[in-house]
């Protein structure tokens, strides 16, 4: 029920934004949506699965570059190329998981760290991908119309990220999500009940890669230029920070975290060069005092009502 209410809140904001928001705010809300969808992949693998992936920006990069290159060299329209690119990104994620998830969790952190570095270097050194200069993003056409107005881009990207978030949210609450969570909470217990941890975790990593590639490609439509320096290890770390600050147990956390990382820098922009420093200082303090993330405030009403009802039951028992 509470979950549904929060979804309604996001939906209301997304639908009403074009009516109240100016162009700049609308752009930022769109960025929040796509960033949240990228981070929701991390929520699945890290928050629910308990494994650290430092490769999310690499998956985003694979998605973006695939979609653009398919368009430039094979003439495949962007809206068809993006799902293909997301699938490619997912396949790479699956392969990465297949190769290294035989091992204990934190090896994934190291492999994905190295993978991020490799993808970044590969992009810079590949001439077909524009090298260090980058590529301009082609425009999207839908039923023969060129979708390049801010409003059209907002609608396309928000719908795409909404679908991604909704899908990941369903997945987290599905049977697979519960098994993945059980695996995090007690690996031994879960395995003794017959859970195939390797294939499950590999699928989770692949799904997170699909989400990254898909939502990332739509973010590229908003940014309109592919600069290889958007896809470094540092940007992967940013996605992890967004997940942790928002709360890593649900997709709502990804949305809250993304909103904070988009809008707080706007408020802090007066700090200029000190902005990133203050931001990460806040993040660190935040992790220490509130390790469950901001989304845990949604559970406060539930906790209060449980507390009241437990008091009530005790009184009844006494009587």
């Amino acid at each position: 029920m509470r979950d549904g209410l929060v979804w309604m809140l996001w939906l209301a904001i997304a639908v009403s934004a074009p009516f109240f928001a100016g162009q700049h705010l609308l752009y930022n809300i769109g960025i929040v949506a796509t960033t949240a969808a990228i981070v929701s992949g991390l929520t699945l693998i890290s928050g629910v699965g308990g494994l650290i992936s430092i490769a999310q920006s690499a998956f985003v990069a694979i998605g973006c570059y695939c979609a653009v290159l398919l368009n430039l060299h094979l003439g495949i329209p962007m809206l068809i190329g993006i799902p293909i690119a997301a699938a490619v990104s997912g396949a790479v994620g699956w392969l990465l998981g297949f190769l290294c998830l035989r091992l204990d969790g934190h090896f994934l952190a190291l492999v994905t760290l190295a993978f991020s570095g490799i993808v970044h270097y590969a992009i810079i050194n590949l001439d077909i991908a524009g090298g260090a200069v980058g590529l301009a993003v082609p425009t999207v056409t839908l039923f023969g119309f060129v979708m390049d107005s801010p409003m059209a881009i907002y609608v396309i990207t928000v719908v795409a990220s909404g679908l991604t978030l909704w899908f990941i949210g369903l997945l987290i609450n599905s049977r697979y999500g519960r098994v993945l969570r059980a695996l995090r909470q007690s690996e031994i217990a879960a395995v003794s009940l017959g859970v195939d941890r390797r294939s499950l975790r590999t699928m989770a990593l692949a799904t997170s890669a699909v989400a990254g590639g898909f939502a990332g490609s739509f973010q590229m439509l908003q940014v309109t230029y592919l600069d290889p320096h958007q896809f470094t290890i540092v940007s992967s770390v940013f996605y992890i920070a967004i997940m942790v600050v928002g709360g890593m147990r649900s997709v709502h956390g990804a949305i809250i975290g993304a909103a904070i990382f988009v809008f707080v820098p706007e408020f802090l922009s007066g700090l200029e060069t000190y902005m990133a420093f203050i931001l990460f200082l806040l993040v660190t303090v935040f992790i220490v005092i509130m390790p469950d993330g901001l989304a845990s405030i949604f559970s406060v009403p539930g906790r209060i009502s449980r507390w009241i009802s437990s008091r009530f039951e005790r009184k009844n028992k006494n009587a």
Binding site: S46, G50, I52, H106, A109, R184, V234, V237, I240, A241, V244, A276, F277, F280, L281, V283, T284, I287, V288, P291
Partner: peptide
């Protein structure tokens, strides 16, 4: 869970 301190080191590094 060990994930949180590890993420904390990532944040400290960024700071």
């Amino acid at each position: 869970p060990v994930l949180i301190p590890i993420v904390a080191t990532i944040a400290i590094g960024a700071v």
